[in-house]
Protein backbone atom coordinates (compact mmCIF):
# COMPACT_ATOMS: atom_id res chain seq x y z
CA UNK A 1 0.00 0.00 0.00
CA UNK A 2 1.25 3.46 -0.90
CA UNK A 3 1.28 6.43 1.44
CA UNK A 4 1.65 8.72 -1.58
CA UNK A 5 0.95 7.83 -5.18
CA UNK A 6 0.85 10.30 -8.07
CA UNK A 7 0.30 9.63 -11.77
CA UNK A 8 1.22 12.31 -14.27
CA UNK A 9 0.48 15.02 -11.71
CA UNK A 10 0.78 18.44 -13.32
CA UNK A 11 0.33 21.95 -11.97
CA UNK A 12 0.60 25.12 -14.01
CA UNK A 13 0.15 28.60 -12.55
CA UNK A 14 -1.33 30.18 -15.63
CA UNK A 15 1.44 29.61 -18.16
CA UNK A 16 4.14 29.12 -15.53
CA UNK A 17 5.25 25.56 -14.84
CA UNK A 18 4.89 24.27 -11.29
CA UNK A 19 5.28 20.51 -11.69
CA UNK A 20 4.95 18.45 -14.84
CA UNK A 21 3.80 14.81 -15.16
CA UNK A 22 5.08 13.81 -11.75
CA UNK A 23 4.63 10.09 -11.12
CA UNK A 24 5.80 9.07 -7.69
CA UNK A 25 5.17 6.19 -5.29
CA UNK A 26 6.02 6.31 -1.61
CA UNK A 27 5.31 3.11 0.28
CA UNK A 28 3.78 3.15 3.73
CA UNK A 29 6.43 3.02 6.43
CA UNK A 30 9.04 4.61 4.17
CA UNK A 31 11.38 7.43 5.15
CA UNK A 32 11.40 9.22 1.82
CA UNK A 33 13.54 12.12 0.72
CA UNK A 34 12.48 14.60 -1.92
CA UNK A 35 15.49 16.45 -3.25
CA UNK A 36 15.62 19.52 -5.43
CA UNK A 37 16.95 23.07 -5.48
CA UNK A 38 14.76 26.12 -4.82
CA UNK A 39 12.07 26.54 -7.47
CA UNK A 40 12.30 22.93 -8.64
CA UNK A 41 8.67 22.21 -7.69
CA UNK A 42 9.03 20.55 -4.27
CA UNK A 43 6.59 22.85 -2.47
CA UNK A 44 4.18 22.84 -5.43
CA UNK A 45 3.95 19.04 -5.26
CA UNK A 46 3.39 19.15 -1.48
CA UNK A 47 0.75 21.91 -1.72
CA UNK A 48 -1.07 19.98 -4.44
CA UNK A 49 -1.06 16.85 -2.28
CA UNK A 50 -2.50 18.85 0.65
CA UNK A 51 -5.21 20.45 -1.51
CA UNK A 52 -3.91 23.97 -0.90
CA UNK A 53 -3.64 24.37 -4.67
CA UNK A 54 -5.59 22.49 -7.31
CA UNK A 55 -3.92 20.24 -9.86
CA UNK A 56 -4.02 21.05 -13.56
CA UNK A 57 -4.12 17.37 -14.55
CA UNK A 58 -3.12 13.90 -13.37
CA UNK A 59 -3.98 11.84 -10.32
CA UNK A 60 -2.85 11.95 -6.72
CA UNK A 61 -3.68 9.63 -3.84
CA UNK A 62 -2.66 9.76 -0.22
CA UNK A 63 -3.17 6.66 1.93
CA UNK A 64 -5.29 5.29 -0.96
CA UNK A 65 -7.61 8.32 -0.91
CA UNK A 66 -8.08 10.79 -3.77
CA UNK A 67 -6.63 14.17 -2.77
CA UNK A 68 -9.29 16.12 -4.64
CA UNK A 69 -12.24 14.17 -3.17
CA UNK A 70 -11.26 13.15 0.37
CA UNK A 71 -9.24 16.14 1.48
CA UNK A 72 -10.45 16.28 5.07
CA UNK A 73 -10.02 12.54 5.75
CA UNK A 74 -6.51 12.77 4.31
CA UNK A 75 -5.58 15.86 6.33
CA UNK A 76 -6.78 14.25 9.56
CA UNK A 77 -4.06 11.59 9.05
CA UNK A 78 -1.28 13.95 7.98
CA UNK A 79 1.14 16.08 9.94
CA UNK A 80 2.42 18.92 7.75
CA UNK A 81 5.33 21.21 8.46
CA UNK A 82 5.65 24.07 5.93
CA UNK A 83 9.03 25.49 4.97
CA UNK A 84 8.13 28.81 6.60
CA UNK A 85 6.05 28.55 9.75
CA UNK A 86 3.44 31.34 9.83
CA UNK A 87 1.44 31.47 13.06
CA UNK A 88 -1.34 33.71 14.36
CA UNK A 89 0.05 36.68 16.24
CA UNK A 90 -1.05 37.70 19.71
CA UNK A 91 -1.03 34.12 20.99
CA UNK A 92 1.08 32.10 23.36
CA UNK A 93 2.78 28.95 22.10
CA UNK A 94 0.38 26.78 24.11
CA UNK A 95 -2.62 28.58 22.52
CA UNK A 96 -1.31 27.90 18.99
CA UNK A 97 -0.78 24.23 19.85
CA UNK A 98 -4.26 24.01 21.41
CA UNK A 99 -5.80 25.67 18.34
CA UNK A 100 -4.12 23.15 16.05
CA UNK A 101 -5.38 20.29 18.24
CA UNK A 102 -8.93 21.70 18.33
CA UNK A 103 -8.95 22.06 14.53
CA UNK A 104 -8.22 18.32 14.50
CA UNK A 105 -10.82 17.64 17.20
CA UNK A 106 -8.09 15.85 19.12
CA UNK A 107 -6.73 15.99 22.65
CA UNK A 108 -2.99 16.29 22.16
CA UNK A 109 -2.17 17.90 25.48
CA UNK A 110 0.19 15.29 26.88
CA UNK A 111 1.96 14.65 23.57
CA UNK A 112 2.39 18.41 23.01
CA UNK A 113 3.90 18.72 26.48
CA UNK A 114 6.34 15.87 25.83
CA UNK A 115 7.39 17.30 22.45
CA UNK A 116 7.88 20.79 23.90
CA UNK A 117 10.13 19.31 26.55
CA UNK A 118 12.22 17.37 24.01
CA UNK A 119 12.54 20.38 21.70
CA UNK A 120 13.11 22.81 24.59
CA UNK A 121 10.16 24.98 23.64
CA UNK A 122 8.51 27.10 26.33
CA UNK A 123 4.69 26.87 25.89
CA UNK A 124 4.17 30.09 27.87
CA UNK A 125 6.10 32.31 25.45
CA UNK A 126 4.40 34.76 23.13
CA UNK A 127 4.46 33.73 19.45
CA UNK A 128 5.39 37.28 18.38
CA UNK A 129 8.59 37.17 20.42
CA UNK A 130 9.86 33.83 19.13
CA UNK A 131 13.01 33.46 17.06
CA UNK A 132 12.87 31.75 13.66
CA UNK A 133 14.09 28.48 15.18
CA UNK A 134 11.51 28.54 17.96
CA UNK A 135 8.72 29.30 15.47
CA UNK A 136 9.88 26.25 13.55
CA UNK A 137 9.63 24.22 16.74
CA UNK A 138 6.00 25.33 17.19
CA UNK A 139 5.34 24.17 13.62
CA UNK A 140 7.02 20.85 14.38
CA UNK A 141 4.91 20.24 17.50
CA UNK A 142 1.73 21.14 15.53
CA UNK A 143 2.71 18.60 12.88
CA UNK A 144 3.67 15.85 15.32
CA UNK A 145 1.39 16.20 18.36
CA UNK A 146 -1.55 14.20 16.93
CA UNK A 147 0.69 11.26 15.90
CA UNK A 148 -0.35 11.11 12.25
CA UNK A 149 0.20 8.22 9.82
CA UNK A 150 2.04 10.39 7.32
CA UNK A 151 4.44 13.26 7.95
CA UNK A 152 4.94 15.72 5.11
CA UNK A 153 7.83 17.99 5.99
CA UNK A 154 8.99 20.81 3.75
CA UNK A 155 12.55 21.92 4.53
CA UNK A 156 12.04 20.92 8.18
CA UNK A 157 15.39 21.83 9.68
CA UNK A 158 15.89 25.35 8.31
CA UNK A 159 16.38 27.59 11.31
CA UNK A 160 17.06 24.77 13.79
CA UNK A 161 20.44 24.51 15.50
CA UNK A 162 22.41 21.24 15.01
CA UNK A 163 21.42 19.83 18.43
CA UNK A 164 17.73 20.43 17.75
CA UNK A 165 18.08 18.97 14.26
CA UNK A 166 19.48 15.81 15.84
CA UNK A 167 16.61 15.63 18.36
CA UNK A 168 14.05 16.30 15.64
CA UNK A 169 15.35 13.45 13.49
CA UNK A 170 15.47 11.18 16.53
CA UNK A 171 11.73 11.82 17.06
CA UNK A 172 11.03 11.23 13.36
CA UNK A 173 13.02 7.99 13.43
CA UNK A 174 10.97 6.78 16.43
CA UNK A 175 7.71 7.62 14.64
CA UNK A 176 8.96 5.88 11.50
CA UNK A 177 9.85 2.78 13.51
CA UNK A 178 6.33 2.81 14.92
CA UNK A 179 5.00 2.52 11.35
CA UNK A 180 4.47 6.11 10.23
CA UNK A 181 5.62 7.30 6.81
CA UNK A 182 7.92 10.30 6.53
CA UNK A 183 8.06 12.37 3.35
CA UNK A 184 10.84 14.88 3.67
CA UNK A 185 11.58 17.62 1.19
CA UNK A 186 15.02 19.18 1.42
CA UNK A 187 17.93 20.62 -0.45
CA UNK A 188 20.26 19.59 2.38
CA UNK A 189 21.52 16.40 0.82
CA UNK A 190 23.45 15.19 3.85
CA UNK A 191 20.24 14.81 5.89
CA UNK A 192 18.54 12.87 3.09
CA UNK A 193 21.58 10.61 2.81
CA UNK A 194 21.72 10.09 6.56
CA UNK A 195 18.07 9.43 7.36
CA UNK A 196 16.10 8.44 4.22
CA UNK A 197 15.64 4.97 2.79
CA UNK A 198 14.38 6.10 -0.62
CA UNK A 199 14.49 9.40 -2.45
CA UNK A 200 13.44 11.22 -5.59
CA UNK A 201 15.25 14.03 -7.34
CA UNK A 202 13.19 16.79 -8.95
CA UNK A 203 14.28 19.47 -11.36
CA UNK A 204 12.28 21.99 -13.37
CA UNK A 205 9.09 20.34 -12.12
CA UNK A 206 10.01 16.86 -13.35
CA UNK A 207 11.26 13.79 -11.53
CA UNK A 208 14.81 12.98 -12.68
CA UNK A 209 15.34 9.84 -10.61
CA UNK A 210 13.54 7.88 -7.90
CA UNK A 211 15.19 4.97 -6.11
CA UNK A 212 16.67 3.85 -2.84
CA UNK A 213 19.22 6.31 -1.48
CA UNK A 214 21.82 3.54 -1.72
CA UNK A 215 21.09 2.82 -5.39
CA UNK A 216 20.92 6.51 -6.25
CA UNK A 217 24.53 6.63 -5.04
CA UNK A 218 25.49 3.77 -7.37
CA UNK A 219 25.17 5.63 -10.60
CA UNK A 220 28.08 3.95 -12.34
CA UNK A 221 29.99 7.04 -11.44
CA UNK A 222 33.14 6.78 -9.34
CA UNK A 223 34.79 9.51 -7.44
CA UNK A 224 38.51 9.36 -8.27
CA UNK A 225 41.18 11.01 -6.12
CA UNK A 226 44.80 11.08 -7.29
CA UNK A 227 47.60 12.31 -5.08
CA UNK A 228 50.74 13.46 -6.82
CA UNK A 229 49.31 13.39 -10.35
CA UNK A 230 50.51 16.27 -12.49
CA UNK A 231 47.70 16.34 -15.01
CA UNK A 232 44.18 15.08 -15.58
CA UNK A 233 43.86 11.86 -17.62
CA UNK A 234 42.59 12.48 -21.16
CA UNK A 235 39.53 10.23 -21.04
CA UNK A 236 35.88 10.57 -21.94
CA UNK A 237 33.43 10.59 -19.00
CA UNK A 238 35.47 12.81 -16.68
CA UNK A 239 33.57 15.59 -14.93
CA UNK A 240 33.81 18.00 -12.06
CA UNK A 241 37.61 18.16 -11.97
CA UNK A 242 39.03 19.79 -8.84
CA UNK A 243 42.59 20.31 -7.65
CA UNK A 244 43.41 20.86 -4.01
CA UNK A 245 47.11 21.09 -3.10
CA UNK A 246 48.67 17.99 -4.67
CA UNK A 247 45.38 16.06 -4.89
CA UNK A 248 43.34 15.90 -8.07
CA UNK A 249 39.74 14.70 -7.84
CA UNK A 250 37.06 14.10 -10.45
CA UNK A 251 33.95 12.05 -11.21
CA UNK A 252 34.39 9.29 -13.79
CA UNK A 253 31.57 7.47 -15.58
CA UNK A 254 33.49 5.38 -18.19
CA UNK A 255 35.22 1.95 -18.29
CA UNK A 256 37.33 1.24 -15.22
CA UNK A 257 39.93 -0.57 -17.39
CA UNK A 258 40.52 2.53 -19.49
CA UNK A 259 40.88 4.61 -16.34
CA UNK A 260 43.49 2.24 -14.85
CA UNK A 261 45.49 2.32 -18.09
CA UNK A 262 45.47 6.11 -18.08
CA UNK A 263 46.51 6.18 -14.41
CA UNK A 264 49.56 4.00 -15.17
CA UNK A 265 50.86 6.73 -17.46
CA UNK A 266 50.29 9.43 -14.86
CA UNK A 267 51.95 7.39 -12.07
CA UNK A 268 50.24 9.06 -9.10
CA UNK A 269 51.59 8.55 -5.56
CA UNK A 270 48.17 7.38 -4.30
CA UNK A 271 44.82 6.51 -5.84
CA UNK A 272 41.36 6.17 -4.30
CA UNK A 273 38.14 5.10 -6.08
CA UNK A 274 34.95 5.59 -4.06
CA UNK A 275 31.22 6.01 -4.57
CA UNK A 276 30.45 9.72 -4.64
CA UNK A 277 28.60 11.50 -1.84
CA UNK A 278 24.90 12.21 -2.36
CA UNK A 279 25.51 15.86 -3.18
CA UNK A 280 27.93 14.81 -5.89
CA UNK A 281 25.34 12.34 -7.22
CA UNK A 282 22.80 15.14 -7.22
CA UNK A 283 25.16 17.27 -9.32
CA UNK A 284 25.72 14.27 -11.58
CA UNK A 285 21.97 13.96 -12.25
CA UNK A 286 21.69 17.64 -12.89
CA UNK A 287 24.70 17.70 -15.21
CA UNK A 288 23.28 14.69 -17.10
CA UNK A 289 20.05 16.58 -17.60
CA UNK A 290 21.83 19.63 -18.91
CA UNK A 291 23.74 17.69 -21.60
Amino acid sequence: MYAIKTEGLTKYYGKTRGIEKVSLQVEQGDFFGFIGPNGAGKSTLIRTLLGLISKTSGQAEILSMDVSKQREEILSRIGYLPSETALYSGMKVKDALALSARLRKADCHSEAEALCKRLELDPERQIDRLSLGNRKKVGIVCALQHKPDLYILDEPTSGLDPLMQKEFYAILKERNEQGATVFLSSHVLSEIGRYCKNAAIIRNGQILACDSVERLGHTGVKKVQLRGARETPTLEGIKDVKRENDTLSFLYSGQIGALLEALLDLAPADVSLTDPELDEVFLHYYAKEEM
Binding site: L50, Y80, A86, L103, R104
Partner: peptide
Protein backbone atom coordinates in the same frame (compact mmCIF):
# COMPACT_ATOMS: atom_id res chain seq x y z
CA UNK B 1 -1.44 38.22 3.80
CA UNK B 2 -0.18 36.84 7.13
CA UNK B 3 0.71 33.44 5.64
CA UNK B 4 -1.69 31.63 8.01
CA UNK B 5 -3.87 30.15 5.22
CA UNK B 6 -1.34 27.32 4.94
CA UNK B 7 -1.57 26.66 8.68
CA UNK B 8 -5.37 26.75 8.76
CA UNK B 9 -6.09 24.75 5.64
CA UNK B 10 -3.52 22.04 6.27
CA UNK B 11 -5.81 20.98 9.11
CA UNK B 12 -8.85 18.77 8.42
CA UNK B 13 -11.19 21.71 7.93
CA UNK B 14 -13.26 22.14 4.77
Amino acid sequence: KDGTAEFLFSHPVS
